[in-house]
Amino acid sequence: MGSGRFLLGKALQAVLTLFFILTFNFFLFRVITDDPVKLLTRTQGVELSEEQQQQLKEDLGLLKPLPQQFVGYLGDTLRGDLGISTFVAPGESVTSLLSGTLPKTLILVGTSTIASVTLGLVLGIYGGWKRGRALDMSSMTGSLVLYSMPEFVLGILLLLLFTKYLHLFPSGGYKSVQGNFTGVAYVVDVLNHMVLPWITLTLAYIGEYYLVMRSSLLDVLGEDYITLARAKGIREKFVLRRHAVRNALLPSVTLIALSFGFILGGAITVELVFSYPGLGKLSFDALNQFDYPVLQGIFLVFSVAVLIANLAADLLYGYLDPRVRTSR
């Protein structure tokens, strides 16, 4: 028994899921595109004779039987070769395209997720604890408004407010196109461009964590063992911290883990509002232009991220709630 087997089981499960993802990703794009060579010739504007097309198919390994193609795909993917972009950046390798955009998304969406999780949880705990107080009521209303507002609407409102009327932040992009900054000035310039999308994403998601945390804390506070703890004379603060919050955190952990998985999916609408060149914008462009290799790469990164986040959540669950480890 014990955590060793628990860990092993989870890891095995993840590997199986990964295999399923790879399989699905392979066949999905075989189903969507009937003739990749035709697609390639269209997007590259090259007219090819029959023999050249046949040659190209052979070069791309499209004449081999499907199982053999699949094995080749698995090998390429594991080696980090995700193919060549056909349209978004013709001729560039998908791997380099992804590694160029990934950090930008990670910084923007990653830090804003951490911020909204932190703020959401803190406000949620406070709201559940001091239900009905002024701060609870105002953060409740605020959360509902922000949570129900589409994030791109919030983005455009902030853009108009801060850029058009207050003249504070640049209108988009991730750095200035002129004045080649280096060192600290470069960092500051990049941060300056990131402020608005960052605030948008943070505000847009606080509500989600706030509401979940608040309601699960309220549930827990009604439990008998809380009453018992109080009866034992434990100070309220420690009732909250050691008994209530720890148990109430479980639903939030799932939510947080999922959100971290989705970080790599980027924030399509917000990235578009602010022309921020992250993964969300890349997937939008790739989808718009039928750049299947790029899409395939994004799908893979995205699903693997969700997979890892889920695995992390499972493990964290095991730590937070020992029952999970030993059940089964």
Partner: peptide
């Protein structure tokens, strides 16, 4: 000395940039 073209995904933001002198 230089001519730079900047690509926007949001036309509203682009027009704001013109008003702001960006």
């Amino acid at each position: 000395d230089k001519y730079i073209v900047r690509k926007y995904d949001n036309e509203e933001a682009m027009v704001t940039a013109l008003r702001e002198g960006e």
